[in-house]
Amino acid sequence: MSKPRAYSVKAYSTPGAQSPLATFSISRREPTDNDVQLEILYCGVCHSDLHFARNEWGFTQYPAVPGHEIIGRVTAVGGKVKKFKVGDTVGVGCLVDSCRTCPDCRAGLEQFCPEMVMTYGSTDRHLGTPTLGGYSQGIVVSEEFVLRIPANLSLAATAPLLCAGITTYSPLRRWKVGPGQKVGIVGLGGLGHMGVKFARAFGAHVVLFTTSPGKSADAKRLGAHDVVVSKDEAQMAAHAGSFDFILDTVSAKHDLNAYINLLKRDGNLVLVGAPNEPLPVSAFPLIMRRRSFSGSLIGGLPETQEMLDFCGQHHITSDIEMIRMDQINEAYERMLKSDVKYRFVIDMASLK
């Protein structure tokens, strides 16, 4: 199979871990028969973008273009594309390809495919070059990895659903969170605020855990029934052994055992935050109450579409702060200080 031709688009890129992002020209492939080409309208800013740009995970190839919460308008489709047409509003999340044949792919769990191709930081199967993300004017993606966006949702506020949304929706659905259950959400950031919204929409009694007493009113506005300040031992002790499920969205060092002790028998603590260093877990709190501790990674394409449709039905979007493309370096520094409510989204028209 011959390589497709490439064309140039403007993007925000960094040439190295210590360099700020700035305007560069990058190459995209011309659409193949099964591809969808889109003009990017909005791109969310995920903490993973910062990790990747600064090579904090150790696999970044430069020049690097972050961005995997993409909302765009279809500008061209390949000859065999059936699901989309020019003018459609669509989304692209963390994945742009996979092997399509392994057990994970056949189960609609492409995020676990050993050959998954991430929106950035992988290798484009067609060009043989590193994949480049959504901080750009346009992108070309295989039809199977493009998602429909409900017409009633704000496009900018929908962008973070493609990562923060599915990351929190998936474990809540997998562990069948619903009415009659007491559910905890640890942390009120980009992930946590979506966890609160989804858990409330699923009908659970929602408790937000935070180290910041000042976040109580906002947590309740977002849907939490109660707020617990996790540094207050008396508040934590009052909830011992009472939770069916806890979703931990914190990426900093913290005490997992304090939350395991809050679970009922057979309760689950699921980690979706990604701390940089290992966190100790004591055996006896798990063993003595048959509790479970596990992790979860975004979601496959079928579940991501289900999540978007659910958001359309329940009018759920992310709380965002819109920025221009040239504000991204400042946004990264603010993100490190948790100075955003609750997700930055780039207006990609500002790149023009």
Rank of each mutant, 00 (worst) to 15 (best):
Y135A: 08
Y135I: 11
C163V: 09
R291D: 01
G128Q: 10
L308R: 04
Q37N: 11
P275W: 05
G79V: 04
P66Y: 04
A64F: 11
T123G: 05
I320C: 12
L263Y: 02
I287V: 15
A204F: 06
F52Q: 14
K337N: 10
V86H: 04
N55T: 09
V227R: 04
R289S: 14
S154G: 08
Q181I: 04
S2K: 05
P20G: 04
T304R: 05
A164P: 01
A17G: 05
T167Q: 03
T32C: 12
H205D: 06
H315V: 10
L308T: 00
S216P: 00
V207A: 13
H254K: 02
R125C: 05
K231T: 14
E115P: 00
G299D: 13
P4H: 02
G128E: 06
S13W: 00
Y120F: 15
K82N: 03
N329P: 11
W57K: 07
F52D: 08
T131L: 10
V81I: 12
M1D: 07
V141Y: 01
I71A: 02
K10S: 14
R290S: 13
K10F: 07
H193T: 02
P130S: 09
I166V: 15
F59W: 13
G223A: 12
T249S: 13
P103D: 01
H126A: 13
F202M: 15
G87Q: 07
K253T: 14
P15K: 13
M335N: 06
T158R: 02
G241R: 03
V77S: 09
Q305H: 05
F293K: 00
V86D: 08
G241I: 09
L297R: 12
N261W: 02
G295Q: 00
R200M: 09
D266H: 14
R28Q: 14
A224G: 10
G312L: 10
Y120T: 03
Y342A: 14
N152F: 10
P280C: 12
L279N: 04
Q37E: 15
A76E: 09
D248C: 12
G108T: 06
S212Q: 10
D266Q: 13
L161I: 08
D218H: 12
A22L: 05
T167V: 02
S242W: 06
D319K: 15
